[in-house]
Design a protein around this nucleic acid. Sequence first.
DNA 1: CAACCATCACTGGTCAGACCAGTGATCCCG
DNA 2: CGGGATCACTGGTCTGACCAGTGATGGTTG
Lengths: 252, 252
Amino acid sequence: MAISREVSYRLERLILDGGLAPEQKIPSERQLAARLRVSRSVIREALHELQGRGVIETRHGKGSFVSTMVPGSDDLREQGPLMHLFEGHPRTLYDLLEVREQLEGQAAFLAAKRATSLDHHRITKAFRALEETDPLSNARPDHGFHQAIVEASHNPILVHVLNSLKNMMLMTVQASVANLNPRAEKRKKIVQQHRQLYEAIMAGRPASAQRVAMAHVRFVSESLRDMENEGSELIRIPVIPETAGCQHSSIG
Amino acid sequence: MAISREVSYRLERLILDGGLAPEQKIPSERQLAARLRVSRSVIREALHELQGRGVIETRHGKGSFVSTMVPGSDDLREQGPLMHLFEGHPRTLYDLLEVREQLEGQAAFLAAKRATSLDHHRITKAFRALEETDPLSNARPDHGFHQAIVEASHNPILVHVLNSLKNMMLMTVQASVANLNPRAEKRKKIVQQHRQLYEAIMAGRPASAQRVAMAHVRFVSESLRDMENEGSELIRIPVIPETAGCQHSSIG
DNA sequence: CAACCATCACTGGTCAGACCAGTGATCCCG
DNA sequence: CGGGATCACTGGTCTGACCAGTGATGGTTG
């Protein structure tokens, strides 16, 4: 096996076995090279690999440090290989919203067209939950509402595609909720759009539902873009695992 | 920002933008170094980072390859559970075409808007191949043409979603080709639609391209439905697992 | 002719040593 | 005492060499 791979495993083991705690400084590259009797290149390559895995962070002139979120279970990286796209690639967020605009629009269209009375009941329930919940604290009702609509489209392919984007969507929904809701005028608009969407679907107006849904996603996207241009740092909220259990164990 | 970080992002973007497909070989370290005008060390460090993220895999003596599970291990990647939907449920085929109508339309729209000269070249090449091939024998050029358009949309999420539907799409495309082409009038219409789509994209007319693409998918869907109603048994051709085309390896 | 093996031109893996570029403490001068 | 220059660290990049798998090519041999 490649030496650099061995080195990265060895260091990772050292860190995760408790030898090194979060925020703690890792020996310098030159020290590690001397200690493990390999060249500095190998050390650097191993460190880059750990960096890619999110185990450590490196700061020029200072050194390498054990990443704070080592335990990893609630780390974005665990949410799927696509998730890391969002770190450092904010454009991808808008790519996602671009696709969502189409799919949510279609889902709304089909839902308005095909929803059964059972679907109506579910959507209504989700909508009530959405209105009654404090959106600042939880984005789940928002997602639940959209989910109910998607399922009412009665298109298994559509459900499947959107479901596979669920984690990413949850993240963007949370981002939008967290960033937009504090802004009264934005939030008001969003609430209004949800209501319009709800009514269009319940009334069986496909074209209208589609228009509202697409406008909704587009509005979220543009709002986020505006805020970014204003210089506000977007808040990124990690996805909360369904079955909570934030037990940061075993280090220290 | 550190150069190696820039390099890794650049490569990552390249891969996920669809420029490089899973299992595809990445240019050698020495080539990358020459093209990006950095030292081989930087390339190696960047590659190790991507390796840590699971984006690529490296094999001694062979090269580096885009990891098969890049698009998402837990989602659409394993088409297993979904494929069974088709057996005995022909309606699912139309569900798929319903979704495709939206996504292909969006892809065409974005391609007409964003395609670079390189994209134009690829699309033209694919279009030529499409015109010159006997569609009765092979559906691959058809798929290649659509694929080139999708990649020109420069939306990695869209590329990812459609790519994960690739096998299913291939199946529907083959179904359409196999069933529609023998009908002279249908086939003529399809050829015409392809030409219109090609021209709209090359001319940079997004709205037009979107309209044509959606009409195309809808036409295929409706034609199949017609034939089914006429009593003709639809031909189902199993997907050929063989070589996935798409060997664009342009970097820098 | 066919089977085989040496060679060669690739690929990544490792090494050594040099120099550039941030960081922060320390020291010396105003 | 305060503040800027210095210096000894840190990581970041470059160079060029050599080692080690891989596979195709072509010549040798049974």
